[in-house]
Structure formats: structure tokens, C-alpha cells
Write a protein that binds this DNA or RNA. Structure first.
Lengths: 207, 207
DNA sequence: TAATGTGAAAACCTTCACAGCT
DNA sequence: AGCTGTGAAGGTTTTCACATTA
């Protein structure tokens, strides 16, 4: 059987964590760190950090550790975070508005270009200088502005339908806030943000 | 070595998903389902569902499947979702307000009882009928109202400090929205909601 | 017949432990 | 001396496959 990629997904999920911790350390004036010190900050074993990094190359110096800034650069590059990723918000209810407005919600590099909604009263209005467009303009807008990421903030009841619409566009990744487990073709990247699931599993350990 | 619990955490994380899908199916009028049909709705293999359930008992009937409503009840009971869980929001900025206001953000059984902030201008005000209290009242309020869950929506810079404060109260679980990997004692349950990490790992697959 | 429940196998991920480099 | 990079070991999770039962 052919493997899509040889890097485990769990490893990819940890890389942004490394970048974040390294950036803090850089801000604190550290120039070199060991896997041990990075690990203790993140509560991850040093061996795991070294193993994770080893999937991509050999970035450390034996006896010394890693150069903070160059490791940040390397990881940023691996994840493709050295480019700008245009995104859009679909669904401009309370949640959608909060997402568009929340400063630092969307980090450097992720630019929200447009917002879509089906509510006739909302269309034409602006949120944080982003004009709300009708849903039927998604396809053309996505194409025109090279939007690759959709942030989905519609009610659960319409989420699957909207996703089916999105599949038909140039959107390549969906950050889904609707509390459903949507079906997407394997070519599309999907991440779910689902605080309710987190709450509902925590209680098991509280009894 | 002693195992804390014999049920893998991944299994616990999937149970709320099962409840959700089963509830939908129940609403659709289905009374009996097989692991196959439940799995196809959630894109999980039937074997995994059967294995997961087998950690807790034998709930199915060979040749038939599972009774939807009784499985919902069983899982709800296992997770402790048949009780009410009092919670509080710490940090009433834009995000905190959105959390308090968002309908269905907090599902049945999770009741937000109080909100805390350190901003003198906010203290005394109400959001969605919940009065904002000063931080130094957390300890007593949590005790008084039997609050077990804290939803943390403070800025990243103060998150670790607030968590350290929370550790000293009767709070047993934290749903953390701050973009940090906080250190908590192993007695406290922690779940992080971190959309930024999700975005930053998605891009790896978009290149 | 149709589907569960479950040991055993396979796949996957983490940790160990140490050779090797600075 | 100190720390990386990495095969190998160990542990965990998923999948297989089938005996069993309604």
C-alpha cells in the first residue's frame, strides 16, 4: 500500500506548538535551546521533539542544541507559514462575527478576505471592514482572490450542505465550527473546533 | 506500573460523538442501528465502535444491533452527562462574552453560573443575565455554587497565572481558550481549544 | 442470516539508550 | 561534557477475522 506521506499527522500537529514556544523563547532572548528545555516548556519528552524534527532533517548541533531563530524559520517553512493564506468566513452570525473581529484569533499569515451569508438583511453590510456577500458568490470570489481556506460558522443544520457547496470550489481546507462530523472528500483538509465535545468528554474524569 | 484507568482516552473522546450521531438517528425515527450504520455516519470503522463500546459492557444484540435510545442513555450515563455541571467563565472580553452569549455553545447540562474579570469597568455589569464578579471572588463562588468547570477566556499573557489561581479552588476541569500550553497538576482535567494551531497545521497539507 | 463481542495480528506512536559529533 | 539523531524496544490503538448468538 502506498503511503501518502511518511510524516505522521500527530507530528505535524505538534509543529505549530514548537514554533510558538520557540518564538516565546526567542523573545526572551534565548538564542540556542536543547530539546530538553523546549520539552520542559511544552511538557513533551525531549526524545519526542528530536524524533519529530528528525522527520524533516538534522537541524541541531550535538553538544549544543538548536539555534532558536533558524529552527523557527525551518519549521515555519515546513508548515508553509512563510506565505500568506487567504481565507473566508462562511456564516456571519454571532460566532462568525466574533471570528472576524477577534484580534489575534487568526494569526499572522491568515488573512480573512471575505465573508458570506444567506441572510438578505446581512448581505451588503460590513464586519470589521469585510463586506458580507451572498453565498452564491463564493465560487467566483474564492477563485478571484485565491482563497484556499474556509472558516465555517453556520448552524449545524446547514453545515453539511454548505460543505458540499464548498467542495465544488477552489477551497482546499475547512476549519469547521459547526458541531457535526461532516463528510468531505479526502482531497479536502478538515479540522473541527468543537468545544462541546471537549466538555462532554471531560466530565467522564470528574465523576 | 498501575494504570489510572483501563479505558484509553481516545475512546472517551469518541463517546460524545456517538451520542450526537445516535441522537440524530433517534430524531430521524431509527430505533435500532448496527455498528456499521453508525460508523458510516461518523466515518469510523464498525470494528472500532464495537471495540470502544466493549470497554463498558455488552449493549448490542447479535444479528440486530443496538437499541438507539438505550445506547444513548448508557453512554450519557457513562460520561456523567445525566447530571448538571455548573461552570464559570473566566475573562469577559470579546471571546468570553461570545461564549456566554452563544446559544447552544454550551449544551444541555452545562450551566454557566458566573463570570469573572479583573477589569473594574466590567465588574458589576451583566452579560446574558450573568453578573460579572471580581477575580478574588472565584474561590468562594466556586465553592458556594458547586462549580466544577472553568472556561478560560483570558489573554495568553495572564492565562498561566489565572490557571495557577484556579488550581487552588474546587475547580476540577478547565476548558482553555488561551493559545498556550498551560502547566496544570495531573489532578486537573485540561482541554485546549486552539483554532490557530489547527490552521497552522492544515497548511502543511495545502502546499 | 445478520450482526455482536473479542482474542490476536497489524499498524502506529513513543520512549529508550547509545553511538557519534562538537 | 553535553546533546543530537536514530535504530530498536516498548506501548498503545486500530483492524482483522471469526466464534457466537438472536
Amino acid at each position: 500500500m502506498v503511503k501518502e506521506s511518511s510524516v505522521p499527522e500527530v507530528v505535524i500537529l505538534r509543529l505549530p506548538l514548537y514554533i510558538r514556544a520557540l518564538s516565546q523563547m526567542s523573545a526572551e532572548g534565548k538564542t540556542v535551546i536543547s530539546s530538553k528545555s523546549l520539552g520542559s516548556r511544552l511538557q513533551i519528552t525531549p526524545a519526542q521533539i528530536r524524533k519529530d524534527l528528525s522527520y524533516f532533517g538534522r537541524f541541531g548541533k550535538q553538544g549544543r542544541g538548536y539555534t532558536v531563530d533558524s529552527l523557527i524559520e525551518t519549521l515555519t517553512n515546513i508548515l508553509g507559514l512563510d506565505r500568506r493564506w487567504n481565507s473566508c468566513v462562511v456564516g456571519v452570525g454571532r460566532l462568525g462575527k466574533a471570528i472576524i473581529n477577534y484580534p489575534g484569533f487568526v494569526p499572522e499569515g491568515f488573512k480573512i478576505i471575505s465573508a458570506f451569508d444567506n441572510d438578505v438583511n446581512k448581505i451588503g453590510q460590513s464586519v470589521n471592514d469585510i463586506k458580507i456577500l451572498p453565498m452564491n458568490m463564493i465560487r467566483s470570489t474564492v477563485e478571484k482572490h485565491d482563497i484556499k481556506i474556509a472558516i465555517l460558522a453556520v448552524p449545524a443544520t446547514s453545515a453539511q450542505n454548505v460543505i458540499t457547496e464548498l467542495v465544488d470550489t477552489d477551497i482546499k481546507a475547512i476549519l469547521n465550527y459547526a458541531p457535526i462530523a461532516p463528510k468531505v472528500p479526502p482531497t479536502l483538509i478538515l479540522r473541527n473546533i468543537d468545544p462541546v465535545l471537549s466538555l462532554q468528554s471531560m466530565t467522564y474524569y470528574l465523576q
